[in-house]
Every structure is written in C-alpha cells, then in structure tokens.
Write a protein that binds this DNA or RNA. Structure first.
Lengths: 158, 158
DNA sequence: TTTTTAGTTCTGTATGAACCGAACTGTAAA
DNA sequence: TTTACAGTTCGGTTCATACAGAACTAAAAA
C-alpha cells in the first residue's frame, strides 16, 4: 500500500487538461491524449505504468490499452532497468516530425483523388473545372514548398 | 412519383466513396462527407435537397442535418431560382483555403501551450527541455514559413 | 379552403468508442 | 511451492454518434 501517485501542481494539472484536449482533437483517444500530456508536463521524464494509472486516475486496463496504442503508433518509448521489471515510459518527442510528414501524405492523397475527379468530370462545366484545377495546383504547390521548408529547417540545425 | 435520383457512372460512385472516406478522416460525419463528395463529382454542379437524399440513399432527416452542418461550417452554399422554392446546393471550393488556415491556427495553439509547458518545467531536465524547445522552434518556424508560402501562392496567381 | 411541396424536427434505435473492475498470466522473489 | 508483482485480457456498462421513419410546419398551388 505505497501510493505511487505523482504530485502535480495546479498549473501542471491545468496544462495536462489543455494539452490533452488538443491531443484529442488530433484524433487521439482521451486516455492516450492525457498520458502524452502528463509525460510532457511532469518533472520526472520517466513514469511507470503504475504512476501513470494512479496519477491520471484511470483504470489499469485503460492505461494498458492506451500505452499499447501509443507504443505501436510510435509516440511513446520506454527503458528498463537492471533488476526492475517495470518499464519507464517517456514521450517520443520526435513524433512531431512524423505528424508533419503524415499531414503531407494526407495532402498528397487528397490531391491525387481530386485529380481523378477532374479527369472524370464533364468538360462542359468550364468555370467549375478551372476552380477545381486551381485547388489541385495549390495542394501540389504546397506539397513541394513544404518539403523545401522542411529541408531548410534541417539545414539550419546542422 | 418522379424519381429525382441522379444517375452515376461506376467510376463516379467509386470516387464518391473514396473522397467521402477522406472527408470523414478530417472529422466530418459520414453523410456530410458523402454529400460534399457527390457535389464535387456530379456533372450538374447544383443539386436539390431531394436529389441529394435520393442519390445517396439517405433519409431526409440525415440529409437535412448534414446539409445544415455543411452550411454553418461554410463548406456548402446554395442559390435559389425565381418561382422555385428549392435550394440548389453546391460545394464551396474555397473551403480548402479555410482548412489550410485552420491548420495554421491549430499549430499556433499547440506552440503556445508547449511554451507554457516549457516555462513550468523544472530546470533540471536540461536535455529534455532543449528538445522541447527545439520542437517549439520548429512549429514557430513552420508557422512563419507557411504564411510566406501562402503569400507566394497568392502572388503567383495575380 | 384544401392539397401539395419542400423541407425540419422529433422520437426512437443501432452501433461503436471508451472505460471500469475482476479475473487472469507470466516472471521473479521468498 | 507459494506469494508478490507487473501488467494484460475479458466481460460488461455507459455514453455519444449517426442515422431512419414518422409527424410536423410553412408557404405556395389548386
């Protein structure tokens, strides 16, 4: 009966809520969203399973499922220590770059379907087709430019 | 008993499904996602309420609610014709630019909360804090660059 | 005035997401 | 061999979403 709950300041709790809500809006399930937020906010960067489930007051099953999800989607990682079976979880900060790349892929997917749509449209709706073409052009322009922006960032960090 | 259902080719049906699924992934509800897709794909750019609900085989209530949603989120528009009470709906192609702007806003929101997190973090986790700082810098860099990219596009269209 | 048209609103219902608590499993310590 | 630990899996509940169908409404036509 030793509680492993982490003590959070009022500000930290608030930040976890706010960050959690933002994470949810990216399509993450509530429990997972808060786990990521907790790991970003807490002073000890590594937390155990028990600390997570006690601090966030979620059941072991909810914690287990959410952690599994975060591990398989590459947002979470852990280390282990000799003579200690527990895993020490920490947020993979790199997941931001993955997120960026995924957005690019989604954008590309959209453009290619819109291209298909344009090819199948009647030639009679000239104005409309031109508008559609312009949107496709914009997405493709964006795709190229974003890649350049990303390269520029990488270079500035050498 | 005059059916107002639009006849779609097999390819058009397929495109509506694919585009609809993509729309759903952006957080749109299924019926609304398919209505947008239908309006992009169909040769007649303007469809009535009845044509939409018959062609997509959704109930009047589903059509009504989805159309209301799309109108209030500025993704759909309509015109009316003298001596005809029906509304003729068409997809507002501009909604792509809004979508782009919304992404920018979301990004900005994220950066500002991460800033808050960084300010509340213990100074002891130096490496971690630096990584976090780098992510914030990246987002802010992205924000600025995206604005430039957008301006560049606007200029290229004059 | 009655009927038709063009929808909207209301009342369910089915489905799935997210979660809890309890039972279970595998490993290690006693 | 039993007990403790560190989680995982299972069964069930709750809640929200998305829809159908029917009743309703407001305006125009007959």
């Amino acid at each position: 009966m030793k509680p492993s709950e982490i003590i959070l300041s009022k500000e930290q709790e608030l930040l976890i809520e706010k960050l959690g809500n933002l994470n949810e809006k990216t399509g993450l399930q509530p429990a997972a969203a808060r786990i990521l937020a907790l790991l970003l906010v807490t002073d000890s960067m590594e937390l155990t399973f028990e600390q997570i489930h006690e601090t966030l007051k979620i059941s072991k099953s909810a914690a287990s499922n959410a952690i599994h999800l975060l591990l398989t989607t590459n947002k979470l990682d852990y280390v282990t220590k000799l003579g200690d079976r527990r895993r020490y979880f920490h947020c993979k900060l790199i997941f931001w770059q993955d997120h960026f790349k995924q957005s690019l892929d989604q954008l590309r997917g959209y453009a290619s379907i819109l291209e298909e749509v344009l090819q199948h449209r009647t030639a009679e709706t000239v104005v409309y087709n031109n508008q559609l073409k312009e949107i496709i052009d914009f997405i493709q322009f964006l795709d190229i430019e974003l890649q350049l922006v990303y390269d520029k960032w990488q270079k500035s960090r050498v």
